[in-house]
Design a protein around this nucleic acid. Structure first.
Length: 590
RNA sequence: GGGUCGGUAGCUCAGUCGGUAGAGCAGCGGACUUUUAAUCCGUAGGUCGAGGGUUCGAGUCCCUCCCGACUCACCA
């Protein structure tokens, strides 16, 4: 690293500037690559001619000479391969996400043309620099002059200009050229002074990968691809709802009351108003207020915050899709969710079948998102997987005994609906691999759901399970203000008895219901878990760019941390345990 | 909080019975005019997570602590 800082100084000293910002690429690497498969002649090795340039047979090594447009590319250097008087530099830019797809498309064309297939996984684009093109620059960047090492390093951001051509081995490349009023062959735009990890194995330490996601994204193609997929999924969800007349809205992240779900909140404080606020645990009550206000179809994709533990499937802040539709029931929403998931799978994978995890035999587990999904009621599930008879499902003593048999100690005052759900989750969830709507929830665990007309013990509600975990939760909304008041009141009493995860009495919400909520159904979908499912990812931390982690300690023992390097002259005490990154000399890197 | 595993060069990892600290990649020097995990020759790089103990001698054995991964519990 010290050596690289010296190189940066050298660049400045030679008038090559540090941190120039006037280089304008004409193409991304993917756009450049697309040129190579747009016409048949470019599929086989050729040498480039600038527009108007005369062919010169002696320079035509590698195939016929073809006229080609001048390109400027910019990207991060991922590999340098100097071979005598020529150098190959592989760069990576935003086109890396699309390059594998383009390479596969090229292979299809090559097969059609009778040419051998080529490696399709590489996400970098090759630059070809012949020393004859610009000896001085070539030597500066790639050769040692006895004192000064080569100035170009893996990790640097470069700008390159030249003509597209295909090498003898068939690799689409940019042949760096100078002159004709164009930018120089190759220039360093940003010097990277911190070396990248191993070029093949990358970063293996999960902690480092999550803390230094910027490095993770540079060196791991599959990580980049996964987050690109996430963006496509979210975008497709928006289009899906917009096409159905839904309005996307944003409701408060800071709430004065806890509501919309059962979870512990993060607490904060507003100084000017002098009131406590809670980061929202769900947007539900605000979205339903909007339906009262006449926005009959609304959706929100935003963060929820729950002050709970971390696990492979839990992050304290997570992204939730919630949508509400007036004059619909939870039955309608089942159809809607089926359609959404099938469309997402098809648009992402080209198929309604995807693979998620492995089964007991270690085989890839196929999941079919083709509608319709299976449906099972909570009571049926207890019978099917819990070994209960139809009568035992309603016997609190039996349920308690079963739970104890599973080492789950039910609360002494737990209502029967809570016992049923606890047992259901324990015995049924592992079986819900293929998409399954669980329906007919006990009313006691559904404080915001409409009561079932036929059976007052049940709520008009479903949860969707896929791959053994909950993906969606929906119900026909309770729109009777008196009933809602009662249920809030029960929550408040539970809280008074010490329950940590309850809702507050929300009198404004009651007032909204008194104004009148049309018959409405609403649904919440955990976006992170949905992305996990659609990208075959086992951990929620792999689908969240910056998952919550314990704060990093800078300035502790050990040389290679940002504050020690950046503030080497900072004489403050930074002993282990003293610096937390927020206090003292251990400042965060900027 | 419990259990299991781990922390050795910038990165990925070896390190036998307790006996001079190792490799590949990256770096640095050299050769090479179509490579693509380039190749070949040379070279440099270490407070073995921290502290204590046992020992003639500790990366290795013991104790305490720190950090992390996985997992269980917790988490509608």
């Amino acid at each position: 690293m010290r050596l690289r800082e010296a190189k940066r100084a050298q660049l400045a000293a030679r008038g090559l500037g540090s941190y120039p910002n006037d280089f304008e690429p004409t193409h991304s690497t993917a756009e450049a690559y697309a040129l190579f498969i747009a016409q048949r002649a470019w599929l086989e090795p050729f040498s480039p001619l600038a527009p108007g340039e005369e062919a010169a047979p002696e320079t035509g090594k590698g195939g016929p000479q073809l006229e080609a447009p001048w390109l400027r590319l910019a990207g991060r250097v991922r590999a340098i391969n100097v071979k005598g008087k020529v150098a190959f530099v592989r760069i990576q830019d935003r086109g890396a996400i699309d390059l594998p797809t383009l390479r596969r498309r090229e292979n299809a064309l090559r097969v059609e043309a009778g040419l051998p297939e080529r490696d399709a996984e590489t996400a970098t684009f090759q630059l070809f620099f012949s020393r004859a093109e610009d000896e001085e620059r070539f030597d500066l960047l790639f050769k040692s002059d006895g004192e000064q090492p080569p100035l170009l390093d893996v990790g640097d951001i470069v700008g390159a200009g030249g003509l597209p051509f295909r090498t003898q081995t068939g690799e689409p490349s940019l042949r760096l050229r100078t002159g004709m009023g164009q930018a120089p062959t190759l220039q360093i735009l940003t010097k990277s002074i911190r070396p990248l990890p191993d070029k093949w194995l990358g970063l293996q330490d999960k902690e480092l990968r999550h803390r230094q996601r910027y490095v993770d994204l540079i060196v791991h193609d599959e990580v980049r691809a996964r987050f690109a997929a996430r963006a496509r999924i979210v975008s497709a969800i928006r289009r899906f709802f917009e096409a159905r007349g839904y309005l996307e809205v944003e409701t408060p992240m800071m709430h004065g009351l806890i509501g919309g779900a059962a979870a512990r909140p993060f607490e904060t404080w507003h100084n000017a108003l002098g009131v406590p606020l809670y980061l929202r645990i769900a947007p539900e009550l605000h979205l339903k207020r909007l339906v009262v206000g006449g926005l009959e179809r609304v959706f929100e994709i935003n963060r929820n915050f729950r002050n709970e533990g971390l696990s492979q499937r839990h992050n304290p802040e997570f992204t939730m899709l919630e949508f509400y539709e007036a004059f619909a029931t939870y039955q309608h929403l089942m159809t809607l969710v089926e359609t959404l998931l099938e469309e997402l799978s098809v648009s992402l994978h080209g198929s309604s079948t995807l693979h998620f995890g492995v089964d007991a035999a270690g085989e890839k587990r196929a999941i079919s998102l083709a509608a319709p999904f299976a449906r099972v009621s909570v009571w049926e599930g207890l019978q099917r997987w819990g070994g209960l008879s139809a009568a035992e499902v309603h016997d609190a003593a039996i349920l308690r005994a079963k739970l104890r048999g599973l080492d789950l100690e039910p609360a002494a005052d737990a209502p029967i609906g809570k016992l049923q759900m606890d047992l259901f989750e324990a015995v049924a969830e592992p079986h819900l691999i293929q998409p399954t709507f669980v329906t007919a929830f006990p009313i006691e665990v559904s404080p915001l759901s409409r009561r079932n007309d036929a059976d007052p013990r049940l709520a008009d509600r479903f949860e969707l399970y896929i791959g053994g975990f909950e993906v969606a939760n929906a119900f026909s909304e309770l729109n009777d203000p008196d009933d809602q008041y009662q249920r809030f009141d029960e929550q408040v009493q539970q809280k008074a008895q010490g329950a940590a995860e309850t809702m507050d009495m929300d009198l404004d919400y009651i007032r909204a219901l008194q104004v009148g909520l049309p018959p409405t159904a609403g649904c919440g979908v955990g976006i992170d878990r949905l992305v996990m499912l659609l990208t075959n990812t086992e951990s929620i931390r792999e689908v969240i760019l910056f998952p919550l982690m314990r704060p990093e300690q800078f300035g502790a023992a050990g040389g290679d941390d940002a504050s020690a390097d950046a503030q080497a002259s900072d004489g403050q005490e930074a002993g282990a345990g003293a610096a937390t990154g927020r206090v003292g000399g251990g400042a965060e890197p900027r």
